[in-house]
Design a protein around this nucleic acid. Structure first.
Length: 891
RNA sequence: GCACGGGUAGCUCAGUGGUAGAGCGGCUGUCUUACACACAGUUGGUCAGGAGUUCGAAUCUCUUCCCGUGUACCA
């Protein structure tokens, strides 16, 4: 036993138990089980993804919930999987193509071959993150791993589309969308991030066509002037009322365009006149529609100018054209002024470039079951934690716009719509396409391709990735699973995808499944660096979790992170905290090693328990409650903190130090009591610890022999020990008496150590104390423990002790404690010490007396508070008297 | 602009009406036979500022400032 290494080495241990758990099928969920169900679906990480700190936080929480639920006797399904992540994955393979010699694009490869390549890439490189989650110790049912494009999931996506189309909620139309000029696809509103920019505001002279003057117009986008079809002013603006109906000359691509009146124009902004460019601005498009204006599109899909009538700009990139257009206008003498201007520009979340409002043919969804989704959260049927996220959620639902679900991508679920071959060209241009057109028999919408495929062509677009993710909580499950595990119990995810994913899943649950998809949503905090910045690759501030696991162990990482993960705010990541997790694992390991060195606990002679034994068992019982309460409230940091302080402070620092002599000494009855108590504490404690530090808990459980006692069952499949079995045969009174004695002992030991430190005696200096007992009885057992804790040779009880003048003395809960020191008896030093203490106490007494002298306090404060204050005062006054006596005896 | 979250010890964070806390760091001792990834002791705070409610406020209300997030408008 003693040849066990002194420090805990997690790597090998963690792999060993992960393998055993898998082998024994500990993570497998049985839909036929009679046990109550507990289920979570993992937020599927991108198949291209690698583990980052956000995943660690998120999945550790899920693992804690899942493992604890198993201990509580539930049948647990934690369903894992990955997301096909349309844009990210396609971009990844395109990057590979670009690296080839010569470089190729997907268009050169062709759709079918390209999609084939992505599949091959996915099989080879995809899902690294799954292996990484296993290293973290996640107890997912890996046999049920799913993928959002696998052949069980895919038909569900097509079915959802078909149903919504038939219901009239999905339609196709030519509308203004957010266009990504790099990725060449439409995006949803949620994928566009409004970002503050330092721009320029250009004020340009638009000459009146009749030569009678000019109109000043301000714009940030002069490169779109060629697409201007009008200038608008507010109808209530007196400055311009006489101009409405007149015409101005467009400064570039010169032509006469009308001055119109529209209330959208703000009188106070800029010059009060606004150029109307319906093809390249959302609100201008609306103004254009209202006023029956022409739409002139002068941009190519990839953001270049397409305007042969303006050869100076034709073919230029949009930002180059901006500079150039201003030069042209300045040359014409039409530039009034240029000002610095801060505005918000929509940036593509995916490609990081400004999006382009663009008129294009896309598929849209009118969200289903919005009302049910809203009510479910409002009435608490689905509980958001922290609760304040419900507000954000409701706010979004109130202003909800139709969802642009088509993407001009090849990797993804292709839209399950086919056009009759001979009419395809015509149908593709149809202004709107709805259920009614489908009935005409010219288009086909369905899960399976049409029976006569040679007569049909399929729609080119793919669906937004989230259009498959929103089905995740049920499309991943078969009938049996659904019956047992749907709705899922908890969802754990980041608040950044509350709209993308959470809200949409709720709607989908009501629309396609048996109601709500989950009972609780726990929103994790966002992991930031110490400066409060988001973790990002470009900043290089994102630690690699695998590196952290290698250095601190998965358990250390999990524990350290949970300990600082607050509920409701962001967490600032500090590697120091992870180191503490590792140190704690080491502490656990050594405490167990210490137990292993002592041999078996016997039952004969019958164990004789003392106050410290009862005390630690009572604290263990309280820990059970504390843990249960923290987890019930999803307070993972409180859970972690409770585990930490019980073990390190209560068990190791106090209890173990107080009982060490029992193990060496000759009293077998006491030794038995101590060994039994250690076993009980460790057994219960490891079970409470297992959800967060599963590997070391299992390791110690096994090496301490707890598994052998239960027929070789791993801790992983053992139910939580019942706290009721602790403290048998002891009534409440006996327990509280023992606890009071133990508390007094520990406090006295502290005072004794203080005394030693104040006289600069090293901790290991063996001194002898003398104790003059007070109200509490002090037996030999207690005195011996006191000596041990204080690092003393002895603590002799002597009621009649007459201390030499100047002997260091402390008031303790167990009485007056003397530290007789030959040659160190120093009257002056003692006088100074006692006077200092006396001053402190006198101050407290003054404060307390003032409080109790305040009639309002005594009359209006609760009786318990007043009594407490009185007791406190009495206590201090007693101490004051004693200290004064000590001072007198010195002189 | 609006909404939400936050500001407590040098650092990371607990504490939601009744004596301001933990861990780390700093400092001082100790290799005391489980653990130096440790042990013992100790030093750190006008609880962002101001006003109010209350016998009593880190905690409740109002207000100002700062940080973060979301959202609207944005010529």
């Amino acid at each position: 036993m003693s040849e066990l290494p002194k420090a805990y080495e997690p790597t090998h241990v963690e792999e060993k138990w992960q393998a055993l758990w898998m082998e024994q099928g500990c993570f497998h969920a049985d839909p036929h089980s009679a046990k109550p169900a507990y289920s979570i679906v993992i937020p599927p990480p991108n198949v291209t993804g690698v583990l980052h700190m956000g995943h660690v936080l998120n999945n550790t929480i899920q693992d804690i919930l899942a493992r604890r639920a198993r201990q509580e006797g539930k049948e647990v399904l934690w369903l894992p999987g990955t997301d096909h992540a349309g844009i990210a994955t396609q971009a990844r393979v395109e990057k590979e193509l670009a690296k080839e010699n010569p470089p190729r694009t997907r268009f050169q490869v062709g759709r079918e071959a390209f999609v084939d390549m992505v599949w091959k890439w996915k099989e080879k490189h995809g899902g690294i993150i799954i292996k990484q989650l296993k290293k973290l110790g996640c107890s997912c049912d890996w046999e049920r791993e799913r993928f959002t494009m696998d052949n069980i999931f895919a038909p569900e996506v097509a079915r959802a589309f078909t149903e919504l189309f038939k219901q009239g909620l999905i339609y196709r139309g030519r509308r203004m969308v957010n266009w990504d000029p790099v990725l060449l696809t439409a995006l949803s509103d949620e994928e566009v991030i409004p970002t503050p920019q330092h721009s320029k505001l250009y004020t340009i002279r638009y000459k009146l066509a009749d030569g009678s003057g000019q109109l000043l117009v301000s714009t940030t986008r002069p490169e779109t002037i060629m697409a201007d079809v009008a200038v608008a002013v507010n109808p209530k603006d007196p400055r311009f009322s006489s101009l409405i109906g007149k015409k101005v000359l467009r400064p570039l691509c010169e032509a006469e365009i009308p001055i119109i009146a529209d209330e959208h124009v703000e009188i106070d902004f800029g010059t009060g006149a606004l150029k109307i460019t319906p093809a390249h601005d959302r609100t201008d498009f609306e103004v254009g529609m209202k006023n029956n204006l022409e739409i002139i599109d002068i941009l190519t899909p990839d953001g270049h100018i397409n305007c042969p009538d303006c050869p100076e700009l034709h073919g230029l990139d949009r930002f180059v054209a901006r500079e150039k257009s201003i030069e042209l206008i300045r040359d014409k003498g039409l530039l009034e002024k240029v000002e610095d201007y801060d505005n918000n520009v929509g940036i593509s979340q995916r490609s990081d470039v400004p999006i382009e409002p663009r008129l294009s043919m896309q598929w849209f969804l009118k969200y289903p079951c919005v009302k049910e989704a809203s009510e479910a959260v409002a009435n608490g049927d689905i509980v958001f934690r922290p609760a304040h996220w419900a507000k954000t959620y409701q706010h979004w639902l109130e202003g909800i716009q139709d969802w642009c679900i088509s993407r001009q991508l090849w990797w993804g679920h292709r839209i399950p719509v086919w056009y009759r071959k001979d009419k395809a060209a015509e149908l593709r241009e149809a202004a709107t396409l709805t259920e009614e057109n489908a009935l005409a028999g010219d288009i086909y919408v369905g899960v399976e391709p049409p029976a006569d495929p040679e007569n049909w062509v399929q729609d080119e677009d793919a669906l937004d990735t989230w259009f498959s993710s929103w089905l995740w909580p049920f499309a991943t499950m078969d009938k049996e699973c659904l019956a047992k595990f749907y709705p899922t119990s908890d969802l754990v995810t980041g608040p950044d995808i509350i709209f993308f994913w959470v809200a949409r899943m709720i709607m989908a649950g009501y629309r396609f499944a048996d109601g709500k998809p989950f009972g609780n949503v726990f929103f994790t905090s966002i992991v930031r660096d110490l400066k409060g910045r988001k973790m990002s690759k470009s900043l290089g501030n994102s630690p690699d979790p695998l590196d952290l696991i290698a250095r601190y162990g998965a358990d250390g990482l999990r524990f350290g992170l949970m300990r600082i993960a607050p509920t409701g705010t962001d967490v600032k990541f500090d590697e120091k905290q992870i180191e503490e997790g590792k140190n704690f694992a080491n502490k656990l390991y050594n405490a167990a090693r210490f137990r292993m060195m002592q041999g078996e606990a016997g039952t004969s002679p019958a164990p004789r328990f003392s106050a410290v034994h009862i005390d630690i068992l009572a604290k263990l019982k309280a820990l059970h409650t504390e843990v249960a309460e923290a987890l019930a409230k999803y307070e993972f940091n409180a859970y972690t903190q409770a585990l930490y302080s019980f073990f390190w402070n209560e068990y190791c620092s106090l209890f173990l130090e107080a009982v060490k002599n029992d193990l060496r000494g000759g009293d077998e009855a006491v030794k038995n009591a101590t060994l039994l108590t250690m076993d009980t504490v460790l057994r219960h404690y490891l079970a409470l610890l297992a959800p967060i530090m599963p590997h070391i808990a299992e390791e110690l459980w096994q090496s301490l022999g707890f598994s052998a006692r239960e027929g070789g069952k791993p801790l992983m499949s053992t139910e939580l020990p019942k706290p009721e079995s602790l403290l048998p045969g002891l009534d409440e009174d006996a327990v509280s008496k023992a606890r009071a004695t133990a508390t007094a002992l520990y406090e006295t030991a502290n005072r004794a150590r203080n005394l030693k430190a104040e006289y600069n005696l090293a901790t290991n200096k063996k001194v002898s104390f003398v104790l003059k007992p007070g109200a509490l009885p002090v037996d030999a057992d207690l005195a011996a423990r006191l000596a041990l804790l204080a690092g003393a040779q002895s603590a002799a009880c002597d009621a009649d002790y007459a201390a030499p003048k100047g002997t260091p003395t402390a008031l303790t809960p167990l009485g007056e404690l003397f530290l007789p020191l030959e040659g160190l008896v120093d009257v002056e030093a003692e006088r100074t010490r006692i006077t200092k203490e006396l001053e402190k106490i006198t101050k407290e007494i003054t404060k307390s007396k003032a409080k109790l002298g305040n009639a309002s306090f005594v009359d209006r404060a609760p009786a318990a508070v007043v009594d407490q204050e009185r007791a406190r005062l009495a206590d201090w006054e007693a101490k004051q008297t004693q200290l004064q006596n000590m001072l007198t005896s010195l002189s």
